[in-house]
Amino acid sequence: MLAIPVLIGILFITFVLNRLIPGDPCRAMLGEKATDEVCDAFFKRYGLDQPMIVQFGYYLGRVVTGDLGDSMRFGRPVTDMLMERLPVTIELALLSLLVATIVGVILGVVAAYWQNSPVDLFTMIFANLGVSIPVFVLGLLSAYLFAVILKDTPFSLPPSGRLTAGVRVQPIAVAWGMEDLSGLPRGLLDFFSQMYVINGAVTLNWKLFSDASRHLILPVIVLSTIPMSVIARMTRSSLLEVMNLDYMRTARAKGLNERNVVFRHAMRNALLPVVTVVGLSLGGLLSGAVLTETIFGLTGVGRTMFDAISSRDYGVIQGFTLVIAFTYVAVNLLVDVSYAVLDPRIRLS
């Protein structure tokens, strides 16, 4: 597997970056007044007196067992914080990716189908602007539009937070009457419980579902704009390229109507490169999540990263960077695999 050396490389880079951080880790952890003896003991305990390569070995061992170190600011294991905040980001990122893909493909197809028409022009202007607007500008301006200008209209949307005060959240396990569940199944259910939209849907808690969804509309719009634009452009150009191929002429020549030609023959092949773009967008989504969550006050991975940056909480920055990079690699692998599934030429060669 090609991904394994890359994963080890990622570990190595996060390790090195962490070691390069200026300052004394002992005094940063235990306070300025720590004596030399205390610090020696500290170094011994965490293996910091060992050669770098041995330290890297320790680090690998810890990461493999799920120990990403502690947050200096909160004095909690980074892994615990991740388990709490990852669901928020996953929910946001997946919803954004879904919206971006559906709307992006529709826009791209429409633009290609009516090439050079005003619809095409409008779509391409939108796509060009979409990749040029900084996420944080779009976020702040849409918050202003929906929370201030449209305040007393039905279109008003909450500019921050995940829920309105007073809306209750129950863990899924409790709602399903499975309080005595423990171990991995319970852990998984608790993980999904943090995704409020899913929680509301599976526990039939309509109030939670609608309120959580309303809070997610703006972040999803903001986060999905860039991938949506990229997907729309890719779909359009890929479809236009396919439309000029020989088998398209054959399809037309045998008398198929244009709609069938486009949707049955062109789309299947045109969507292949789009799959790659969808997968690659995830990196941008994770980067964008830092900004989106910061603006909309969502306590996900991105927001935690931002807080950790502000307070120089290196353990958290390192652990979260690692997890984000791992996710990214996993998704890219998934894209490669799906490519083989979708394209017989790759599968059979």
Binding site: V6, G9, L286, V290, I317, T321, I324
Partner: peptide, 12 residues
């Protein structure tokens, strides 16, 4: 390996 990081996250 460098490409495996989302660009803004690595820059951060």
């Amino acid at each position: 390996i460098l490409l495996a990081f989302p660009s803004l996250i690595l820059a951060i």
